[in-house]
Amino acid sequence: MNKEVESLSKTLAWAVDSIAQCGPDDRKHIALAYWQAQELVANIPKDDDGDARPRILACFERSDACRAAKDIACVGWILTAIQERVNERNLPDWRKLRKVINKTLKMLPLSEPTVH
C-alpha cells in the first residue's frame, strides 16, 4: 500500500473512532469545525498545478492547534484536510477513501450552520 494512503487511512480511522466515541454535543462541535474548515478551503485557491496543498496545510494547522488545546474540533479540521487530498483524485484507491469519508460525515449532524 502506498505510504500516503496508509497514513491517510490511519488518520481517517482515528477520526471515525473519535466521532463514534463522543456524544451529541461533541459531534455538533466537530460538525461546526468541519463547516468552518469547508469555508476556509473554499477561500484558498489551489496552487498553479491544481494542488490542494495550501488548503490541506491550513486545515492541518488549525487541527494541530485544536488538538494542542484538547479540543475535539480537531476532527472536523482533519476530515476536511483528508477530503481535500482525496478530492485531488490522484491517490491509489481514492474512491474507497472517499466512500469512507462520506460514511464518516453521515455520523455528524451536518445541516448547514445558520448564520446569525
Rank of each mutant, 00 (worst) to 15 (best):
M1C: 05
M1A: 11
N2S: 11
N2Q: 12
N2H: 14
N2I: 09
N2T: 06
K3H: 10
E4S: 12
V5D: 03
E6G: 08
S9H: 13
K10E: 14
T11D: 14
T11Y: 04
L12R: 06
L12D: 10
L12V: 05
L12H: 08
A13Y: 12
W14V: 06
A15E: 13
D17I: 02
I19W: 00
Q21N: 08
Q21P: 00
Q21D: 01
G23W: 00
P24V: 15
P24R: 09
P24S: 13
D26H: 00
R27W: 02
R27A: 04
R27P: 01
R27K: 14
K28E: 14
K28I: 10
I30V: 10
L32S: 04
Y34G: 03
Y34C: 07
Y34W: 15
A37E: 01
A37N: 07
A37M: 10
Q38R: 11
E39W: 05
L40M: 13
A42H: 10
I44K: 13
P45K: 03
P45V: 03
D47P: 10
D48V: 08
D48I: 11
D48P: 10
D49V: 03
D51N: 15
R53F: 08
R53E: 12
I56F: 08
A58G: 12
A58C: 12
C59L: 09
C59P: 03
F60V: 11
F60E: 15
E61K: 13
E61C: 05
R62N: 02
S63M: 15
S63Q: 11
A65P: 01
A65V: 12
A65H: 07
A65L: 12
A65N: 06
C66N: 00
A69I: 00
A69S: 14
D71V: 00
D71N: 06
I72S: 00
A73P: 00
A73N: 00
C74I: 00
G76N: 11
G76C: 09
W77L: 08
L79N: 00
L79M: 13
L79P: 02
T80E: 08
I82A: 15
Q83T: 14
E84L: 06
R85M: 11
R85G: 02
V86L: 05
V86I: 11
N87K: 11
E88G: 08
R89C: 13
N90I: 13
N90H: 14
L91K: 04
L91N: 07
L91D: 12
L91I: 04
P92C: 11
D93V: 13
R95C: 01
K96Q: 14
R98W: 08
K99P: 01
K99N: 14
V100S: 14
I101G: 14
I101A: 12
T104H: 07
T104N: 03
T104I: 02
T104F: 09
L105V: 02
K106Y: 04
M107V: 01
L110Q: 03
L110Y: 03
S111P: 01
E112K: 03
E112N: 09
E112F: 11
E112T: 11
P113S: 04
P113Q: 01
